[in-house]
């Protein structure tokens, strides 16, 4: 059992070992069983994953080498031409990449910090605790079309609540067409993003907090540690698996961000809020540049892998 890895090296050694250990017939069977067990566990997942994620995605890799409108017989093989175009020639892709980075910094830092804070606060025994938890999570359950509508109304320059409130509190001069100006549009969508995404890390952190043994806190209390020291020395380290998940997912989501931008600004004004994923969508489904859109999708995938996988690996290494 302990030397599993050595055993698995190859069948050539088996006779030798069999000579040492009897009975000879059982050992290969047990070994086969041991080798097969993990794969049997993973079989359903692997089948579905290969058939319905890997296969479609790999076929899109082939598409990314073409110039094609998706329907006609007129397909031209352009090699890496689409990638070249994205990296060196496409001003919108450059805006999009910049926006993705801004989005990433804001929507990873703020919802994670806020979610952690709220999770710790709501892990205590407080009156109305369940209500608070549900309320904070509530924006996250809204369907996309609803979020788009609610916030388009809030930001509306003529009847929106944001401008009205600014006027009530005497800050009317800051009233603005939030989503309609290139300076404020991305920031306005980010606020919505924070609103919608904070419940998720909170939920994960709440689950993570349950795994921290009470004795740890008691020991800290006996040592006379204050709130902050306890939080830093016990809560934060114990939440490590959750940090990994929250940050990695936040980063990946930020590279892929599509829904909110698409529904709130449609990438405008003047493409100032395009992200890689909205630009991919425009190309694939509005401009019918299937090849170019597929190439953009691969750029997105590679960037998020480059960002997230090393992080996940280093954090979960055993």
């Amino acid at each position: 059992m302990l030397h599993g890895r050595e055993h698995a090296a190859g069948p050539a050694r088996v006779p030798e070992r069999a000579a040492v250990r009897a009975p000879a017939r059982v050992l290969p069977l047990a070994k086969a069983r041991r080798v097969a067990t993990p794969w049997l566990f993973m079989l359903p997942a692997l089948l579905i994953y290969l058939g319905f994620l890997v296969y479609p995605v790999v076929s899109s890799l082939a598409l990314s080498l073409l110039r094609w409108d998706g329907l006609s017989a007129d397909r031209a093989f352009v090699g890496l031409g689409n990638y070249q175009e994205i990296l060196f020639n496409d001003p919108v892709a450059r805006i999009a990449l910049r926006n993705n980075i801004v989005w990433m910094v804001a929507t990873v830092l703020i919802p994670t910090a806020l979610g952690l804070l709220l999770a710790v606060a709501l892990n205590q025994k407080l009156p109305g605790r369940n209500f608070f938890r549900s309320a904070i999570y509530a924006p996250g359950v809204l369907p996309l079309v609803a979020v788009g509508l609610i916030w388009s109304w809030l930001y509306n320059p003529t009847f929106g609540l944001v401008n009205q409130v600014l006027e009530w509190v005497g800050l009317g001069r800051f009233a603005s067409g939030w989503l309609g100006s290139p300076e404020t549009a991305l920031g306005a969508v980010i606020v919505t993003g924070i609103w919608q995404r904070t419940g998720f890390p909170m939920l994960l952190y709440l689950a993570g907090l349950q795994a921290i043994p009470n004795e740890q806190y008691e020991a800290a209390r006996i040592d006379g540690a204050g709130r902050w020291e306890t939080f830093r020395a016990i809560t934060l380290p114990w939440l490590r698996p959750m940090h990994v998940i929250v940050v990695a997912l936040g980063v990946i989501e930020a590279v892929k961000v599509f829904d909110l931008i698409y529904s709130m600004t449609n990438g405008g004004p003047a493409w100032s809020t395009q992200t890689l994923a909205t630009w991919m969508y425009f190309n694939m489904f509005q401009y019918f540049n299937i090849g170019y859109g597929s190439a953009l999708a691969w750029v997105i995938a590679v960037i998020s892998i480059a960002f997230a996988i090393p992080y996940i690996r280093s954090m979960v290494r055993r």
Binding site: A45, P56, S59, G70, I290, W298, I300, S304, I305, A308
Partner: peptide, 20 residues
Amino acid sequence: FFLIGLAIPIHVALVPLFTT
């Protein structure tokens, strides 16, 4: 290998999924 799936934007798989 499983994790890489996180990075995939779903739009890119729509047409092949449909065909399948």
